[in-house]
Simulated assay, not measured.
Amino acid sequence: MTHATIPQKMRAAVWGGESSRLTVETIPVPTPQADEALVKITACGVCHTDLHVLKGEVAFPAPAVVGHEISGEVVSIGEGTRSDGSIEVGTQVIGAFIMPCTQCEQCRAGRDDLCEKFFAENRLKGNLFDGTSRLTGAQGERLSMYSMAGMAEYAVVPMSALASRPENVPAEEGAILGCAAFTAYGAVRKSGLAEGETVAVVAVGGVGSSLIQVAKYQGAETVIAIDVADEKLEAARGLGADATVNSTDRDVREAVLELTDGKGVHVAFEALGRPETFTQAASLLREGGRMVAIGIAPGGVTGEVEISPLVRRGQTITGSFGAVTRIDLPAVAQLASDGGYRVKEAVTRKYSLDDVDAANQALNRGEITGRAIVVM
């Protein structure tokens, strides 16, 4: 169950914890255990969620390797793995950032997105489900894993977090299916979006631009993209947005009401995680409207919502961290295969692993429209 040409060493982007910078180091190639696969990484997405970790806005133990949306080839499967045969050595795969243990109460209830072990062990401690990391540094020191620690040439991934990549989905760009598209798909599903409804997307970065594609494919009649950058709004139109609003130029609520005959939208997605955009998204809802909050904020940050409209108009606000991995990751892969999610248009920049720090700094400066990827 192992490819014959696996090296002993690999290059990985390591975060030391002292600053937000990444350095490329040579470290041992990890070994998968039962129910895990070793994936030779083709590409890994550059995401704001990693950036929150690098900037210390989300608590995570350093030193670590980040990177949580990947594409690649399975080159080894851990001894004792229970497999249905869908993922084997040689399978081209994508990997989701939510890696369900499959055994906890939430996973047994079909809520992979609330997996108890994933949040307790991986997101809090940088481990896999057995309470240990698979990564060590050049001197043998432990390295934490953020999801599968995909910003490296190889990564150990739980089998539960993998799906095969359809042949007609590009290998490099397909990496973004595991977070940008996956997160958008889960949010649209939780919104209960019905065909013919109107949608507002507040902040059209990697996830926001993905929301446009998924919402249009699911039947939204009108999608309104809202951002502060004209370049991002122009790109949003190219991905299917029917109207755009630059919030630095005009009052967003007033603009949305004009576009919706004074009623507001059926569904508003907030994809940035800032108090002002959270409040803004809630203000755009019509009677019975639903807001889905997706953007991650630093710990302790709150957003204000006016109470009376929420109560009197029967509105709802829900959070959505991702999707249900074992069901939705294959569905997202099929969505891309069917043309409902155009990964080549969603990916706007490619970096080499040597330039991974530059990629994150560009993201931090707000220079990346859509999604960037690091190609190994």
Rank of each mutant, 00 (worst) to 15 (best):
Gly295Cys: 12
Arg108Tyr: 13
Ser283Arg: 05
Phe269Asn: 06
Ala362Asp: 15
Glu167Gly: 06
Glu173Tyr: 05
Glu105Cys: 02
Thr369Ile: 15
Gly288Thr: 03
Cys107Ser: 08
Phe60Lys: 04
Glu57Ile: 02
Glu141Asp: 12
Ala64Gly: 09
Ala243Glu: 14
Gly85Met: 04
Val58Asn: 08
Asp50Ser: 07
Gly299Glu: 14
Val39Lys: 09
Val89Ile: 03
Glu116Asp: 11
Tyr185Thr: 04
Ala175Ile: 01
Thr277Gln: 04
Gly339Thr: 07
Val39Ala: 05
Cys47Gly: 06
Val252Ile: 11
Ala62Trp: 13
Val343Asp: 11
Ile98Phe: 01
Ser147Cys: 09
Ser86Leu: 05
Thr81Pro: 09
Glu36His: 14
Ile41Pro: 10
Thr81Cys: 12
Val267Ala: 05
Pro63His: 13
Ala215Asn: 03
Met145Arg: 05
Ile368Gln: 07
Ala220His: 05
Phe321Gly: 06
Ala161Leu: 07
Val252Ala: 13
Ala37Ile: 10
Thr277Gly: 08
Thr23Phe: 08
Leu22Glu: 11
Ala297Arg: 03
Glu172Phe: 02
Gln106Phe: 09
Glu167Trp: 01
Gly288Trp: 06
Ile224Tyr: 13
Ala359Met: 07
Gly17Asp: 13
Ala149Glu: 09
Val267Phe: 05
Val311Ser: 14
Ile226Lys: 06
Ala184Pro: 11
Ser320Tyr: 12
Leu335Thr: 01
Leu114Val: 01
Thr222Pro: 08
Leu259His: 11
Ile212Tyr: 10
Gly262Asp: 07
Pro309Arg: 00
Gly219Cys: 13
Ala243Tyr: 14
Asp242Tyr: 11
Arg349Glu: 15
Asn127Ala: 10
Thr23Val: 12
Ala346Tyr: 01
Asp357Thr: 05
Ala362Val: 00
Arg134Thr: 15
Tyr146Val: 00
Pro309Gly: 02
Val199Leu: 09
Arg237Gly: 14
Thr31Ser: 14
Gly72Ile: 02
Glu367Met: 04
Gly80Trp: 10
Arg108Ala: 13
Lys263His: 11
Thr325Glu: 09
Gln315Pro: 08
Ile87His: 12
Ser71Lys: 02
Glu304Val: 04
Glu173Cys: 02
Pro158Phe: 03
Lys117Phe: 12
Val66His: 03
Cys104His: 13
Val14Lys: 07
Leu143Val: 08
Pro61Gln: 11
Ile368Arg: 05
Phe60Ile: 07
Thr23Leu: 06
Thr23His: 10
Ala236Met: 03
Thr248Cys: 09
Val324Gln: 15
Ile373Val: 12
Ser320Pro: 10
Arg326Val: 02
Val265Leu: 03
Lys117Gln: 15
Gln361Asn: 03
Gly208Trp: 06
Gly131Pro: 13
Glu79Trp: 00
Pro100Asp: 00
Ala43Val: 06
Ser147Trp: 00
Gln334Glu: 13
Val201Asn: 10
Val311Leu: 15
Gly137Arg: 11
Ala236Pro: 04
Ile317Leu: 14
Ile296Leu: 15
Ala359Asn: 11
Ala109Met: 08
Ala203Pro: 07
Gly322His: 09
Gly273Leu: 06
Gly300Cys: 07
Gly150Asn: 03
Gly178Pro: 08
Asp50Thr: 04
Pro158Ile: 02
Lys232Trp: 09
Glu36Lys: 10
Ser283Phe: 07
Leu51Lys: 00
Gly208Gln: 03
Arg342Leu: 14
Pro63Asp: 13
Gly174Phe: 06
Asn364Ala: 15
Val223Cys: 12
Thr325Arg: 06
